[in-house]
Design a protein around this nucleic acid. Structure first.
Lengths: 211, 211, 211, 211
DNA sequence: CATGAATGAGCTTTCATTCAT
DNA sequence: CATGAATGAAAGCTCATTCAT
């Protein structure tokens, strides 16, 4: 009986998780079957249960990794030179991927989180992390004067976050919406939302105010 | 020779649909069972299939009626004296209900629509109806000068719609978010989004700035 | 509450039975449903049970009436001027109908009779009636010298009967068998079987042999 | 890395098929249930579906294997030293088994084949194989002078085949028919059918003719 | 490590039958 | 007479999970 190599173990687990992610995204959390996941991961069901205790734990793991990835994207966005622009183009990218490879799991995670406390907790923790990221960005923006100093940053972060979910929903609600117009309006909304009153965000007559 | 009474039939169908709605909301579309629906509706499984051909058709019907209801709410909102305020308090009400009776089916409908073309079509048609409602409101607002005349009303309507979905998501992501602050920020965002540049929308000391 | 008119009652029952016969023939005894029979007979299930106690009783009734019809055909055949020819053309007609309207219920009755004692009894009684008919014909033929006097008429009648079933089976086993050749061989077999030794039955050069 | 052992798989499949055959024979194709088959085969329903996709495929497999067995019997018969005698005693044996273990599935296969095209095809192919076997035997007999050279061998083979089905039917129609008399008459019929005109087949006064 | 045979509870759906009207 | 709403047992089938190898 060999000892488990923890590195290899984690690698295999990640590999299975990826396959599971494709299945869960394709069929939905509760219509995807263990057999499908096994086929996609090219392993046997017995082997699968070496890495995951139950189907629920796979769902939880997918939820976790998916959200973690989203958080890392948000982290990148807020650290970019033009976060608003970066956010909008991230949403564009999301929408493009939706068209190509299907809707992904975010909506399923949200729906699941409303019922399964395990997933709910994962979502909440992840969301609070994301909100913290966004709030920090907003606070920094307030300091530098580019963001309305009167804005309730913590809450605004939450609302910004919900915008991402809403955007995901929108690509399902209106798959044929014109991408450019959507991006433009989105940018307008976010800009106006965050800009200081009479601030630079407004395209027309902004600069004067800064003087 | 009694013939089918279509009124009674529809009444019973609606009754079952309501029970099914509760079940589907409680357990999710694919974890809710026919047996649970029957128990909730207090009918036998055999009888259920007098009114619905398959479980999928029940899901589709729930999706349809749920979305129809949402549309009627939006219709009411845009016809109210202060639509923005009405929208925000509708979102508050939604959030309150979420806390009391669970998350409802909207997120499930969105997730399902991404995979089941039947539900997808229902959602798309409903959404375009809602967008039309909102777009008409925005156009009217532009005429009366209360809404930014440069706004792309059709797209803005879509984005506004996605805000509702995002709001639903937010009550799952951050269930303990302070309701008042949330409403306030939401109102800010929508107001700033829609107001004409330099417009009256800014609550705190706006006009002075323009001088 | 009107009294039942026994004539009308029997008429309706016969009408339903006919519809049931079409259904049972189309789908098989145990795949045909009461609902299908009701649709075919254009009555409600409640009403159907006014005329038949159970589905089994419908099957039994169909078996009975089908066999009764077959017996009447055999009666006609043995009374005809040339029974062998009549039998062969009856088998031709059976085969033609099989091609047009499907296999009918005979094989189902046989299969059912092997298991359901009720149907078994119906079949046995009917069969013994048919055998009696055929045996009487054979005996008469023996008296007139046209049938081998050494033949065991009772048993030969049974074998003749089984030929009809076999013929039905053959139209399923080999649906594209040449009809003329089949009839010819069948006629040969029956003729040779029944003819007195060295008898007139042989078509080609028979009499000469006797010299 | 153990791979599927195809031998074991086929063995198990055959074992299940045998159990299924007993069930289907006992209850009929459409009254036998999966649960009964599982009980008879001592496996779980889930496991059954490792080996068969649907109940229909089990029926088709039973039809196929049953017919294949029948064909092998016919092959043996035509290769025996006295095929007519062998055929008659095979029919005797069939009848004896019918009395002991029930009617078997032949009639069900015939009835099913008239409706289910899958089974229909299986039956047709098997039947044409059997007819070929019988036709070859008849042709050989014609060469050796023991069978009427004027006989249409292909068609006669078909009719001979239908005799087997008819015989099966007869054991249901007249279960108490005297076995010896039946065999005797059957032998008479077949012999007279096949013998050359004025041939040796006739028990009484045949030899003279040969001179 | 890895397999896939095996389980069995539970799923959706069907259908013969009953009953209030 | 006639309806069809209503029942509920049972059907075929699925699938998460276990276990001997």
């Amino acid at each position: 009986m060999r000892k488990v190599d923890p590195v290899k173990y984690e690698e295999k687990r990640a590999e299975i998780l990826e396959a599971a992610g494709r299945c869960l995204a394709r069929h939905g959390f509760h219509k995807a079957t263990i057999a499908q996941i096994c086929a996609e991961a090219k392993i046997s069901p017995g082997h699968l249960y070496h890495y995951f205790e139950t189907k629920e734990s796979i769902i939880a793991a997918i939820a976790g990794s998916g959200l973690e990835y989203a958080k890392s994207r948000v982290a990148q966005i807020v650290e970019s030179s033009n976060p608003i622009k970066a956010l909008v183009s991230e949403l564009e990218r999301l929408n493009a991927r939706h068209r190509k490879t299907g809707p992904g799991v975010l909506l399923d995670v949200l729906a699941e989180a409303g019922r399964d406390p395990t997933v709910g907790k994962i979502l909440e923790e992840n969301s609070s992390g994301m909100r913290e990221l966004l709030a920090a960005f907003l606070r920094k923006g307030q300091t530098s004067g580019r963001i309305d100093p009167d804005l309730d940053t913590d809450t605004a972060a939450a609302v910004l976050l919900s915008l991402i979910d809403g955007s995901k929903a929108l690509s399902i609600r209106a798959p044929r919406l014109d991408e450019k117009r959507r991006s433009k309006v989105l940018r307008q909304m976010i800009t106006r939302f965050l800009s200081p009153p009479g601030g630079m965000a407004r395209k027309a007559a902004p600069q004067r105010r800064l003087i």
